[in-house]
């Protein structure tokens, strides 16, 4: 049994496997399939200052080796989360992290301030990369200046671990990562979904009500790996990798590329028990290859000179 513990910029994880926001509900949806306490961290659904109905149906399109979604941050708002959902989450014996999104900087700050009081929430994931909302979201995360501005503002209001989720829909993700590190982020997670689109040739209409949506699943893994590798070289804070991880081998690839932890997203829809399998599989890989700790393989990619 290898040591799977990770210190992610001050946040202690019992193992490096987390669940990606928007793919695991609040965790309870998966209780019949997994032991929630075994997961390194549960990142719950994107939360905003006010209730959001999200985008109209249809919000999903299946694509080769993946899917597009345009949910649009449907959630009941941070106060509902604190009053109705958090009391149950307090009983879950692992890190519960809240993904925070907003249309304005004030939205982000106000939501983060409210979450800071919750003792069982040791971290937030700042979502500056949602492609499915008209205002805010990805707009903050696609330019270094605005990314830095929003992270700086939340940093003042939120004293605990602040992970910042980056968008792949940029020319140079390392530049954005450096900007949010400078602004006070404790870690970065990447990638959020890639902006994409699906067309129905039969009806000559877009499949999604919003025309464009976010692409996820194994089809994005090569892009995600490349960006994790570039970012890990560019910053000194830990990088959390995600994008198309379907099994333990995929996860190992992200660690080798420089990720200190990973998130499982779309794979939860295909196999609701996948988190358990990935944790076990990482352990097996480390044992079989003679590594005593997960830390031994982080950034251990061997590249010929």
């Amino acid at each position: 049994m290898a040591d799977l513990n990770i210190n992610l910029g001050g946040l202690a994880l019992k193992n490096p496997v987390m669940t990606a926001s928007g793919t695991f509900g609040y965790g309870f949806e998966f209780e019949d399939f997994v032991d929630l306490s075994r997961i390194g961290g549960i990142i719950v659904k994107g939360t905003t200052i006010r209730h959001r109905e999200g985008n109209p149906y249809p919000r999903m399109a299946e694509t080769p080796s993946g899917m597009l979604n345009a949910v649009g941050l449907q959630n009941k708002g941070v106060d509902y989360f604190i009053n109705k959902i958090y009391p149950d989450l307090e009983k879950v014996n692992t890190n519960v992290i809240v993904n925070v999104s907003g249309s304005t900087i004030d939205d982000y700050v106000e939501t983060a301030e409210k979450l800071a009081y919750l003792s069982h929430i040791p971290a937030i994931e700042l979502n500056i990369s949602c492609p499915n909302v008209k205002q805010g979201g990805m707009a903050f995360g696609t330019c270094a200046g605005s990314a830095e501005e929003v992270v700086k503002a939340v940093r003042k209001a939120y004293p605990k671990h602040m992970m910042v989720k980056l968008s792949p829909n940029v020319t140079d993700i390392a530049e954005i990562a450096r900007a949010v590190e400078f602004a006070g982020a404790d870690s970065v997670s990447l990638i959020n979904t890639l902006l994409g689109m699906a067309v129905d040739a039969k009806t000559r209409k877009p499949v999604l009500s919003t025309v464009t949506g976010g692409l996820s699943g194994p089809c994005v893994k090569p892009v995600a790996l490349r960006m994790v590798w570039q970012t890990a070289k560019a910053v000194n804070i830990p990088v959390v990798g995600l994008g198309g991880i379907m099994n333990a081998t995929d996860a190992i690839e992200f660690f080798l590329a420089g990720a200190s932890a990973i998130q499982i997203g779309t794979a939860n829809f295909i196999d609701p028990t996948i988190t358990m399998k990935v944790i076990d599989g990482i352990n097996e890989y480390l044992d079989e290859n003679g590594f005593g700790s997960i830390k031994d393989i982080i950034g251990a990619l061997e590249i010929a000179d």
């Binding site: 793919t23 109209p56 149906y57 249809p58 999903m60 979604n69 949910v71 939860n268 609701p272």
Partner: peptide, 16 residues
């Protein structure tokens, strides 16, 4: 409706 997860996590299959 078109669905992904089937267990209430992805919020894709919503009906208004």
């Amino acid at each position: 409706n078109m669905m992904a997860c089937g267990i209430g996590a992805c919020l894709c299959c919503v009906e208004d």
